[in-house]
Amino acid sequence: MEKVMKCVSIVKYILIVALLVFIGGLLRNGEVSNSKISKVTENVTKSIDMEKLSESDHRMVKRLYGINANDYEGVSLYVAGSNMEVEELLIVKLKSTEQAEAVEEAIKKRLDKQLESFEGYGPEQCKLLNDHVLDVRGNYILYVVNNKAKAADKAFQKSL
């Protein structure tokens, strides 16, 4: 019986090693970034044309996207001053990657609403909206409507 117990004990140690390997794998492949949202926002805003954009508060996040900024690690929102402009920049740092789906959904709703508003009479705005970038990377989400949207995405990815 003692031999059996020793075997059981060995299995236990193998399990601990397997757990450590699993955690190591998670750390290696983990997509979650601990970069500060202020730093990511700074890098992204430097990469695009910010002339028409100005920073908005949490109430605007709620109004435009229907999400509560306090539910997330951090939210940065920049919107155009005029209703006739569609430039927009949203960066969300999630508390958990599980939140990604809901935020993505909210962004798509906002995009559809904007497209609906400009359809038929705002071809330039529609083009910008159609060329938007929506990038979900682990615990970070970027949504940008700007003629330099791709550059913004590059800066975003580099900052994580």
Binding site: M5, K12, I16, A18, F22, L26
Partner: peptide
């Protein structure tokens, strides 16, 4: 992904319980 942790927790503590009792 984390279902692995749950399974580990089940098997590891199951074995530990048996070992403690045996000793």
């Amino acid at each position: 992904v984390y279902i692995v942790l749950m399974m580990f927790s089940i098997v590891y503590n199951y074995i530990s319980g048996i070992e403690i009792d045996y000793w």
